[in-house]
Design a protein around this nucleic acid. Structure first.
Length: 258
DNA sequence: ATGGCCGAGATCCTCGGA
C-alpha cells in the first residue's frame, strides 16, 4: 500500500499537476493539505475519473485537508481536535491493511510566524491539543500513521541554513521540542529512520530561486507508531512535481507499507 | 545585505504562507 502526503497549495490551481502525479505515481491514498477551497468547490469528478474517491474538509481561501483514495477508507472524521479558530487542519480515517486496522491522520499544522504574535501561540496551543489527543488515541489504537505538513524543521540538517531559522516558528527549539514530545509517545519520523544522515527537503520557497539553489526545508513528515514500524517498506521524497510548470512549493512524500 | 513568489478574494490591493 502506497500512501502519499502532499501540500498542494490550492487543489484547483494545482489540478493538472495532481492528476499527472496520480497517473505516474499511482498512490492508494493521497493525503493533501492546503486545498484552499470549500467542500462544494472541490474537484471531485476529476479524481473520480481516475478511480479515486475524495473525502474533504475544506475551508474558503485558506487551509483545508482531504483524502483522495482508490482504496476503501472509512470513519472519516474532521473533529480530531477542537480548533479555537475553526480552521480545517485535520482529517482522519481508518484503513484496513492486511487485516490490521490503521488510523490515518492527515494534518496541516499552523505556520506560527511571526513568532511574537498570537499566530505563534495558536501553533503552540494547536500542537499541545494534538499531542494530548494522540496520547488518548493510542489507548485504543496502537496502529497510527500521522502524515502531513507539520511546519516543523526537526533538526539542523533538515534546512539549508539553520542559522536563518533559529528564531523562526518552524525551527524554534520550543516547537521542535513539541515535535519530539509527539514522537516520544511512540512514533518514528520514517524519513529519518531510513536516512540517518541524508539531507533532503520537501519545501522550497517560490522566492529568490530557492528551488534552483536547493534552499529547502524538510517540513512534511510521516510519523508511524512503533507497532507498524516493521511493516514499513520505504519512504521517498518525490522531487519531480516541484520542478514542473506551476508547481506547489511543497513536493510529495511517499510511504510504502507491506 | 536585500529582496524576491504565489493563490484567493473581490481587486486593481490585502492577507496568508514558510
Amino acid at each position: 500500500m502506497k500512501i502519499t502526503s502532499w501540500n498542494v497549495n490550492s487543489v484547483r490551481a494545482r489540478i493538472l499537476n495532481i492528476k499527472d502525479y496520480i497517473k505516474l505515481s499511482n498512490p492508494d491514498i493521497l493525503m493533501i493539505q492546503e486545498i484552499k477551497t470549500e467542500d462544494k468547490s472541490f474537484p471531485y469528478t476529476d479524481f473520480e475519473r481516475l478511480g479515486y474517491n475524495s473525502y474533504v474538509y475544506g475551508q474558503k481561501s485558506y487551509n483545508g485537508v482531504a483524502f483522495i483514495s482508490k482504496k476503501e477508507i472509512n470513519q472519516i472524521e474532521t473533529d480530531f481536535i477542537k480548533d479555537p479558530k475553526k480552521q480545517s487542519r485535520v482529517i482522519t480515517a481508518n484503513v484496513i491493511n492486511k487485516s490490521v486496522k490503521i488510523k490515518l491522520i492527515n494534518i496541516y499544522v499552523p505556520n506560527g510566524n511571526p513568532v511574537n504574535t498570537e499566530k505563534y501561540t495558536y501553533k503552540l496551543n494547536w500542537l499541545n491539543s494534538f499531542i494530548k489527543k494522540i496520547k488518548k488515541l493510542l489507548l485504543t489504537n496502537k496502529n497510527v500513521i500521522i502524515g502531513g505538513d507539520f511546519n516543523v524543521i526537526p533538526e539542523k540538517n533538515d534546512v539549508y541554513d539553520y542559522k536563518k531559522y533559529e528564531n523562526d516558528a518552524l525551527f524554534k527549539l520550543e516547537i521542535r521540542k513539541k515535535y519530539q514530545e509527539l514522537m516520544n509517545l511512540g512514533f518514528h519520523d520514517i524519513y529519518r529512520y531510513f536516512n540517518k544522515d541524508k539531507t533532503e527537503y520537501t519545501f522550497w520557497d517560490y522566492m529568490a530561486g530557492s528551488w534552483q539553489k536547493n534552499n529547502g526545508l524538510r517540513i512534511d513528515h510521516f510519523l508511524v507508531s512503533n507497532n507498524l514500524l516493521n511493516n514499513i517498506k520505504r519512504i521517498n521524497i518525490n522531487k519531480k512535481p516541484r520542478g514542473k510548470v506551476k508547481p506547489s512549493d511543497h513536493t510529495p512524500v511517499e510511504l510504502e507499507i507491506n
